[in-house]
Simulated assay, not measured.
Amino acid sequence: MTKVFRRIYSYKFLLPAAIVYIVIFIVPTLMSFFFSLTRWNLSTYEFIGLKNFQMFFSEPSLLIGFKNTAIYAVVTSGLKVVLGLLLGVFLTLGLRLTGYLRSVVFFPTLVSTIAVGITFTVMMHPTEGIINMGLQMLGIDGPDWLGDRKLALLSVAFVDVWKGVGFATVIYIAGILSIPQEYYEALQIDGGNSWNKFWSIIVPLSRPATNSVIILSFIGGLRSFDLIWAMTKGGPGFATDVIASIIYKQYQGGFYGLATAGNVILFIFVTLLVYPLSRYLTKNEVDL
């Protein structure tokens, strides 16, 4: 009886967190699934079954949206892993300006995404932007970064990397600093050089940090909307349309049930990609 009482008593400490989780996540998720089966507005709704899903999958730009979403997520997460790791190694070398440099690298993460989007839209202007003006001084004709269908999505992705690599770097710094010094001492005794230190110790033993950066960046890339909308609004044409921007356009048009169905599809799409990726990555983590 005492054990049962202690168990119930300990579960009471979890109750506040459980209530918050249910109210903020579970209830809205279930409501989204329900309203995706209806035609609704702010006051009434009408149950229509799976018609919203049929209409969403008949969206002409949907295939482009799925392709752009996948490309955007892979490019941004891949670059954040590579750059975050390199910056993390550089910022753990014990340089005199390490604290200042860490602040500089992390600062873009703190800036509003919309502000970053507007700023880079101005900087990437084909004739008056500071980027192309700088290239012009070097005798290079800069492209129309956001107006060229082939470059627009990658241009936004690079801005996303610039803004988010600081967060990835912080994760890597924590992972690298958690590696026991005994590994470095053993490598030094064996006559290893800096490359051996990086490739044989830092890369494998910072795998948990790498996994975290991949998963968080990949999820963020699949769900990305605000930066893309601030810079291109899905254009030119459908060149930078992602699933989230397609959903937002449906909300703008007053098709709330259709947009809710799109959100459900996006939720399922992200889950189907991220869950097996997470299982695969964590299965091969190295224990320190």
Rank of each mutant, 00 (worst) to 15 (best):
F5H: 11
S10F: 14
S10N: 11
Y11C: 14
Y11T: 12
K12Q: 14
F13D: 04
L15S: 11
P16T: 13
A18H: 04
I19L: 15
Y21V: 11
Y21M: 15
I22G: 13
I22H: 05
V23G: 11
I26C: 14
V27S: 07
P28I: 12
L30T: 10
M31N: 13
F34R: 14
L37H: 10
W40I: 05
L42D: 06
Y45G: 05
Y45F: 15
F47P: 06
G49Y: 12
L50K: 02
L50G: 12
F53E: 05
F53T: 09
Q54V: 13
S61T: 14
L62Y: 08
I64P: 00
G65F: 00
F66G: 06
T69V: 08
A70R: 05
A70T: 15
Y72D: 09
A73C: 09
V75L: 13
T76A: 02
S77G: 00
S77Q: 03
G78M: 03
L79E: 05
K80I: 03
V81N: 02
V81H: 01
V82Q: 01
G84D: 03
G84N: 03
L91H: 02
G94E: 13
R96I: 11
L97A: 15
G99I: 07
L101A: 12
L101R: 03
R102V: 08
R102P: 07
S103N: 12
F107E: 00
G117A: 08
G117C: 06
P126G: 05
T127E: 13
T127G: 00
I130D: 00
N132S: 10
M133T: 12
G134S: 02
G134L: 09
Q136K: 15
G142K: 04
L146H: 02
G147R: 10
G147H: 11
D148Q: 07
K150A: 13
L151K: 09
A152K: 03
L153D: 07
L153R: 04
S155K: 05
A157Q: 04
A157I: 01
D160T: 09
G164S: 14
V165T: 06
A168E: 08
A168R: 02
A168P: 04
T169W: 05
V170Q: 02
V170C: 01
I171Q: 04
Y172A: 01
G175R: 01
L177Q: 15
L177N: 13
I179T: 01
Y183H: 15
Y184H: 04
Q188L: 12
I189V: 15
D190N: 13
S194P: 00
N196W: 00
N196C: 03
I201A: 02
I202M: 06
V203T: 06
P204C: 10
S206Q: 03
P208T: 04
T210W: 00
T210G: 03
N211Q: 01
V213K: 03
I214N: 01
I215T: 04
G220R: 05
G221S: 10
I228P: 02
W229F: 15
A230H: 07
T232Y: 07
G234T: 11
G235H: 10
V242M: 14
S245I: 14
S245P: 00
I247N: 09
Y248H: 14
K249A: 11
Q250C: 04
Q252I: 10
G253V: 04
G254Y: 10
A259S: 15
G262S: 03
V264N: 09
F269V: 08
F269K: 07
V270D: 09
L273W: 01
L273Q: 10
Y275M: 11
P276D: 08
R279D: 11
K283S: 11
E285I: 13
L288T: 06
